[in-house]
Every structure is written in structure tokens, then in C-alpha cells.
């Protein structure tokens, strides 16, 4: 039996593509694509690189989300993952990070034994970076976050990683099973290959609801069980448009700017 790797992934709206209607202050959401979260693509890629080296490695991708998240799972299968599972139920809706990690940890336990869990550091729609560590806590695993370099020893049990810090990095050694959260410096994700896409579209992707996961919607998952709630949400007030500086030539413009900065005692 080869290594068993679990990859936690999320389908997210591409927040870079979102614009705000300057008149109404509301979001323009039309045409915003749903994508595999960037950091999660790095998580999957690292798993695939292990499988490239040790072909008997088995990779399972786990996600929680609406039924449409299957599209993202198909993409993961087309890249080379062996299996994918979707946790989806209206009872899981409104989960905060604590409740989300309960659901995903339950899904991972249902899958059985594993050696390494990879997750992206954070998702671009929430940017919390909390779900990875919270899954690790619930499964009782050691964790390393912000992984920028990964080495697996020949014993397939010892891992040496570099963990990014603001001003450098740490070199950390740990044993499997463990949770590693990945950042984009780790690798460059591959593209899907054609044969993979055909196979993936035909693949059977099980959907597990709260009952399948054996989680309690009153106590463990969903909005009512979540310790945090949204009190209010709003859009930031757009800052008023300032002055445009015009002039006969660049030199004039440069000087006009300096004069205005000086007159307002900014410089």
C-alpha cells in the first residue's frame, strides 16, 4: 500500500474579477468565474508530485460546498487525483471556520487511514487561514502552515519542510500523519490533460450530507452551531474622487503635483 494523501480544496469566486459599481456601491458579480482556490491548487500539485515519484500513492480531494463544487472536483481529478468527495447539505450552510472544520474532519475520518493532508493556506473569498489548522486540531495532528518547500524522506514517514516567515523561513521536521498548508511559492500547478478530463467527467463523485458525515446540525455544523455570527455586513465608503492634475508637459505636471503636496503641508 502506497501513501494515502488527502487534499482539502475549495471552489471560490475569482475575487480578482469582481468590480464595484461606483454609482450604487454594490458588487458586480455577473461573469465572475468559480475557480479552484489558488493555494489549494498548490496543495494538489504537491500531492501529484509525490504520486509522480511514487505511483502507488492514492490522492483523495475533499471539499465542502454547494453541488456546483463538483466542477472543481472534476478539475482536480483531471489533473491526476484518484478520488474526490463532496460534503454538501443545506444543514452545513452558514458554517464558520470552527463548524466547517468539524464537517471536513468528519469527512476525512470517514475516508479512513491517511498519511499526509495538504490544504491551501487560505481561500481568497474568506482569507481566514483558519480551517486547515482547525481540521488538524480536530484530528489531533501536528501541523505546519505556510509551507514553501517540501521534502519526503525515503522512509515515507519523515517530512522536512520550509515554513515561510515574514523575514525568512524555518526548517521543520515532522512525522506522518500530519497537516501541511501550502502557499504559492511551493510549486507551479500543472494543467489538466485531455485524457484526464475525459476520465474525470465520467468519474463517480460521492456527495455526503450531514447524516453521512455523522455530524449534528445543532451542535457541530451549520450556522446555529457556529460560535461566530455575522453581526452586520456592509461595503466600505468609497473615498471621494480627488483632483486630476493636468499640464502642458510631464515637467509641468510633475511640478504641479509637488506644488500641491507642498501647499497642503504634505511634504
Amino acid at each position: 500500500m502506497g501513501l494515502r494523501i488527502i487534499v482539502c480544496a475549495k471552489q471560490v469566486p475569482d475575487t480578482n474579477e469582481i468590480k464595484i459599481n461606483p454609482k450604487t456601491g454594490t458588487l458586480i458579480r455577473e461573469g465572475v468565474p468559480s475557480i479552484l482556490n489558488h493555494d489549494d491548487a498548490n496543495a494538489l500539485e504537491e500531492a501529484l508530485r509525490i504520486k509522480d515519484r511514487y505511483p502507488d500513492t492514492h490522492i483523495t480531494v475533499v471539499t465542502m460546498g454547494p453541488p456546483q463544487a463538483k466542477d472543481m472536483l472534476i478539475e482536480c481529478l483531471a489533473k491526476g487525483a484518484d478520488e474526490a468527495v463532496l460534503a454538501s447539505d443545506r444543514a452545513l450552510g452558514g458554517s464558520d471556520t470552527w463548524a466547517t472544520s468539524n464537517a471536513i474532519a468528519a469527512a476525512i475520518q470517514k475516508l479512513g487511514e491517511y498519511d499526509i493532508i495538504f490544504a491551501g493556506r487560505q481561500a481568497i473569498d474568506g482569507d481566514t487561514a483558519q480551517v486547515g489548522p482547525q481540521i488538524a486540531e480536530k484530528l489531533g495532528l501536528p501541523q505546519v502552515t505556510y509551507v514553501q518547500d517540501f521534502q519526503l524522506e525515503e522512509d515515507l514517514k519523515t517530512i522536512t519542510v520550509k515554513r515561510a516567515l515574514e523575514d525568512g523561513y524555518e526548517v521543520i521536521r515532522l512525522k506522518t500523519p500530519c497537516m501541511l498548508t501550502t502557499i504559492k511559492e511551493l510549486n507551479k500547478p500543472r494543467y489538466m490533460h485531455i485524457a484526464g478530463i475525459y476520465q474525470a467527467c465520467a468519474a463517480d463523485i460521492p456527495t455526503w450530507n450531514a447524516a453521512d458525515l455523522n455530524v449534528d446540525p445543532d451542535k457541530e455544523v451549520g450556522l446555529d452551531a457556529s460560535p461566530t455570527n455575522v453581526f452586520r455586513s456592509f461595503t466600505p465608503l468609497p473615498k471621494g474622487k480627488g483632483q486630476m492634475i493636468e499640464g502642458d508637459c510631464e515637467k509641468d505636471i510633475g511640478q504641479q503635483l509637488i506644488i500641491r503636496l507642498k501647499s497642503k503641508h504634505i511634504i
Binding site: T97, T128, Q130, Q134, T145, T228
Partner: peptide, 20 residues
């Protein structure tokens, strides 16, 4: 990078909320 590694772990162990 340390606070964001530590706080979610503490919150999960205490079963309380955390806002990032």
C-alpha cells in the same frame, strides 16, 4: 505567520470563535 498558525489551533481546542 505565527499568530495565524496559533490562534485557530487555540480556538479549536477551546471550542470558541475566532475572527481573522
Amino acid at each position: 505567520h505565527i499568530g495565524r498558525d496559533l490562534a485557530p489551533r487555540v480556538a479549536a481546542r477551546l471550542n470558541t470563535g475566532l475572527t481573522a
